[in-house]
């Protein structure tokens, strides 16, 4: 029984990471109907940014956090301006290749800047692991859980209560109609890009103490985050959050109750099942929008 609890607790930690990445995917998809294959690279940039600012230059943690997230947001801004806005034929396949190209580019750039070695960081606060009925929970995991929940709540508030947030949603529902009502649609897309890059960076920043950071850490995290977003329902914030946690717990239980060889397969089998039987995700009931 204690093992099962430990699997769940471990799963929640991994799940929180997937959740934050998934929310980044979902946000962007919500406003632009675009899947950014470079999302995992934003996570990596966030982690490496913190390694540099906090680990190497010893800037105070909070400041380093904010600087990193701001820096990656600027990269997201540039990416949208230079690579996405300029596309003449925004067909999904073309956009997929562009974002894949961008992810290779970011990875190559990070390899030049930070080298090929991995880095590690100490946890934000140095307290011993928490004991939850015999299962061990790292203090950093609590940070991850709290920050991801606060972020999603913040985003939810932003979408529901602020004018800009509502305008972004309007763009997502119908871009032309939003334009007619005077919403600057292009600026909303740009904002969505910046926010989703920032979400990626936050994911990278908060996970950097529990994992090892290297230039190639982003690809698999990005794909898993994507599966989580699919699982919860692409475009739904709360869905993505729950999808992330669910995926993490299922993976962890899969390791515990079956065998660890199939761990990665679990995420993708779930992805296929969801796509085949409930393409809207487990939360959202709306039908899949078709291109």
């Amino acid at each position: 029984m204690q093992e099962i609890l430990q699997y769940v607790v471990s799963g929640l930690t991994i799940g929180a990471i997937y959740a934050v990445i998934a929310v980044g995917f979902s946000m962007l998809f919500n406003s632009t109907e675009l899947i950014n294959f470079a999302q995992g690279e934003f996570v990596m940039l966030g982690a490496m940014g913190l390694v540099t600012l906090w680990g190497v230059f010893h800037i105070p943690l909070v400041l380093a956090l904010l600087l990193t997230v701001a820096g990656v947001s600027v990269i997201g801004f540039l990416f949208e301006r230079l690579a996405i806005r300029t596309v003449r034929n925004p067909h999904p396949i073309v956009l997929i290749i562009i974002t894949v190209g961008a992810s290779i580019f970011f990875r190559g750039l990070s390899m030049l800047i930070w080298g090929k070695d991995a880095y590690s960081l100490p946890p934000f606060t140095d307290t011993p692991p928490l004991d939850v009925f015999g299962a061990k929970l790292l203090s950093q995991s609590i940070w991850i859980l709290c920050i991801s929940l606060v972020l999603v709540a913040g985003l939810y508030f932003f979408y529901k209560k602020t004018l800009t947030g509502k305008a972004m949603q309007a763009c997502a529902i119908n871009k032309k109609a939003a334009c007619l009502t005077g919403i600057p649609a292009e600026r909303m897309v740009l904002l969505a890009f910046i926010l989703s890059a920032a979400m990626g960076a936050v994911a990278g920043v908060i996970i950097s103490p529990i994992t090892m950071c290297s230039y190639d850490m982003g690809t698999m995290l990005g794909l898993k985050g994507f599966c989580a977003a699919m699982l919860g329902g692409l475009g739904s914030l709360w869905g993505s959050l729950i999808g992330g946690f669910l995926l993490g717990v299922l993976e962890s239980l899969g390791v515990g109750l079956f065998t660890s060889g199939v761990k990665d397969a679990i995420a993708f089998i779930i992805l296929l099942l969801i796509l085949y039987f409930r393409p809207g995700g487990i939360i959202s009931a709306k039908s899949v929008r078709r291109f």
């Binding site: 690579a83 596309v87 003449r88 290749i97 562009i98 190209g101 580019f105 190559g108 750039l109 030049l112």
Partner: peptide
């Protein structure tokens, strides 16, 4: 060492200019 950077850039530029 620049191989990845150049490869990524080529993909992006070709797709942006000649979709």
């Amino acid at each position: 060492e620049f191989e990845m950077v150049v490869y990524g850039l080529i993909l992006m530029v070709v797709m942006i200019l000649l979709p």
